[in-house]
Amino acid sequence: MNSTEKLWAWKLVLAVILLGMAAGIWGAVKRIDYEWRWYRVPQYFVYHAEEARKIPFDGTVDSFNPEGDLIHVTLRSETGETEVQTIDAETLKVSEGESLFEGDTIGFQKYWRIGPLLTGLMTTLWISAGASVLGLALGLLAGLARISRNYVLRSLSAIYVEFIRGTPLLVQIFIAYFFIATVFDVGRNMAGVCALGIFAGAYVAEIFRAGIQSVPRGQTEAARSLGMSALQNMVYIVLPQAFKRILPPLSGQFISLIKDSSLVSVIAITDLTKSGREIITSTFATFEIWLVVAAMYLIVTSVLSQLVFYMERRLAVSD
């Protein structure tokens, strides 16, 4: 039997279910009488900021020099100094020859500013990136230590992994911030990155251990029989093969890390989640903002998983 025969029917079923769920949500929202204010959302991505331009001394307006939408205003002080201020033409508040006192507003300059949703996203991205690098390095070291012949290394690694996997990330973040960051006097961003990196490292260690152990012993034997050192064997033979196998679980771990990074908002790091919360306190657009925040996380994680999918295909050439 051809398994693709009835696929269109199943697609139809899927569409009906999804539409049904959407309709259900829509109906539910209707009943609580929520007023959607989507128009309030875009300004939190980018907004048009205005900054007042002021005269820094007592003096007069010397001349105007228009350039497109802008206007360059030359100001002359009583002592003869001149200064040029650039403002938006339509916000011009002075006329030529007018006398002004220090601090009077000449006009405004408008420019685009990125809003809290984007700055929050940036924070989330760099915290995740920093924690990923740290987690990868720690995980590789701990994973290698875990399979080492040395009892001390093996035990240290096991304790690390057990401790981190056995306690909640939220608690670890609090410990990192209130205890360790205080003792070593590091900032909250550093504490956040370290807590996430150390957390991810424990899981990455297990992934690396499993990956290295999945490479057949014969590979190591062949490498060593050619005179390669243990390190050369690891670098050129075992890790490249292990890496290919652990790429899917590793990417899953890093996607989790991006999502878990939302927890650092509890130590007042203004990441995407915290930005969302702050915007809600001033707009009350609760539904819209949380939906947007969720969508932004989803976009980041989907891009990452597509990237990994592409790498997997690249690495599959030797299969």
Binding site: S225, I237, Q241, S318
Partner: peptide, 18 residues
Amino acid sequence: RAEVGMVFQQFNLFPHKT
């Protein structure tokens, strides 16, 4: 080992290398 070549029952070629 560099002076002693070895050939294995299972070949043990490096699969990720040409």
